[in-house]
């Protein structure tokens, strides 16, 4: 149907339909949090004010929530508020949830990013080695390392890590972002403690933060390593069985050229998607890790909000991580299209 349209128009159409998909997913996300927050609790007002609230307070909150209006109108208003960045007020901190989330997000992002770097730096070579020595001992060893990562409860590994490396061996610092007497020295500019310390030139704080971060970051990195090495292995297995690999070998290319330049070069495109998705997985994994390491990020914020029965904060945090998830998916779509010459020609078809 769209075949005889001029090319720019076709691209625009493709872009529009893709944008629509993303928009629908985001609205779906919002309707899910709306459902959890407003429909699921038997009485959303009681969930906020508690059972001992005065009738006046109850009535005020009832009207503030707009519960007197029909449900679809409530939902439209909810969407409008979200678009304006209004996630409601956190009942435990008394600040807008959005402000809270913005101030806690950098710490999570920093931890997840360092974890991802560790996961990619180790996971991709491990996956390649695993595929290259398929069904030999390196493959078995790497698969078992990955399977352990899939099977171990992350919060438990964090506790054991603290016990061994902090308490017994004293190699790393304990929970928290920096030691108590270092807190508040560095002015907050980006929210990333390492970057802020480097900007302020406080190298003592910097190294202290590194020693605090290393254990949770390695933990998170291990989990992404398990996923990334497994996916790399399967993509590489597929590539190495292709005929072009045989051709390259027949032409006398070195093993390194065959495996790294040809096979890994082709595997890189699906791997970008894998890595983008595992980044989202790390944001989620950090919820449990942050509670163990008292890391001042989104995970810890969600954890303490749960105990304060602060639904606005819980749902706001869920929504934020969900949106980041969707954005990462979008990003991987775009990267895929940009990197893969075939998908470009497909769009041109």
């Amino acid at each position: 149907m769209t075949d005889n349209l001029p090319r720019p128009l076709r691209l625009l159409l493709g872009f529009a339909s893709w944008l629509l998909t993303v928009a629908i997913t985001l609205v779906g996300l919002a309707s899910l949090t709306f459902f959890i927050g407003r429909v699921l609790p038997i009485d959303p007002v009681l969930a906020i004010v508690g059972e001992k609230a005065l009738p006046e307070v109850y009535d005020r909150v009832y009207l503030e929530l707009g519960l007197d209006k029909p449900i679809w109108q409530q939902f439209i208003e909810y969407l409008g508020k979200l678009l304006r960045g209004d996630f409601g007020i956190s009942y435990s901190t008394n600040r807008p949830v959005f402000t809270d989330l913005l101030s806690f997000f950098p710490a999570t992002l920093e931890l997840a990013t360092i974890g991802l770097v560790i996961g990619v730096a180790l996971g991709v070579p491990m996956g390649v080695a695993s595929a290259y020595w398929h069904e030999k001992w390196p493959d078995h060893l790497i698969r078992v390392i990955g399977l352990i990562g899939y099977s171990v409860p992350i919060f438990w590994l964090g506790l054991v890590g603290l016990f061994v490396f902090y308490y017994k061996l004293g190699w790393v610092s304990g929970p928290g972002q920096v030691d108590v007497f270092f807190t508040g020295i560095v002015p907050r500019i980006t929210g990333f403690i390492l970057v802020d310390a480097a900007i302020a030139g406080e190298w003592e704080v910097f190294w202290n933060a590194v020693s605090h971060m290393i254990l949770p970051a390695v933990l998170i990195g291990y989990f992404s390593l398990a996923y990334i090495s497994r996916m790399t292995r399967s993509v590489m297995l597929d590539q190495l069985s292709r005929e072009y690999v045989l051709t390259a070998r027949l032409k006398g290319a070195s093993e390194f050229t065959v495996v790294v330049r040809h096979a890994l070069g082709n595997a890189a495109i699906p791997l970008v998607t894998v890595i983008a998705l595992s980044y989202g997985g790390l944001l989620e994994g950090s919820v449990l890790v942050e509670t163990i390491f008292a890391w001042p990020g989104i995970g810890n914020y969600l954890y303490s909000s749960l105990f304060a029965a602060d639904m606005n904060a819980v749902l706001g945090g869920t929504l934020l991580v969900g949106i980041v998830f969707v954005l990462l998916n979008m990003l991987s779509d775009v990267l895929y299209a940009a990197l893969d010459p075939r998908s470009r020609s497909l769009a041109n078809k």
Binding site: G37, L302, L306
Partner: peptide, 18 residues
């Protein structure tokens, strides 16, 4: 897709919280 787009543990957390 919407359900797949949300991290599992967080969605479960929010549900149980409600």
């Amino acid at each position: 897709d919407v359900f797949l787009a949300i991290p599992k543990l967080l969605l479960a957390l929010a549900f149980v919280a409600a």
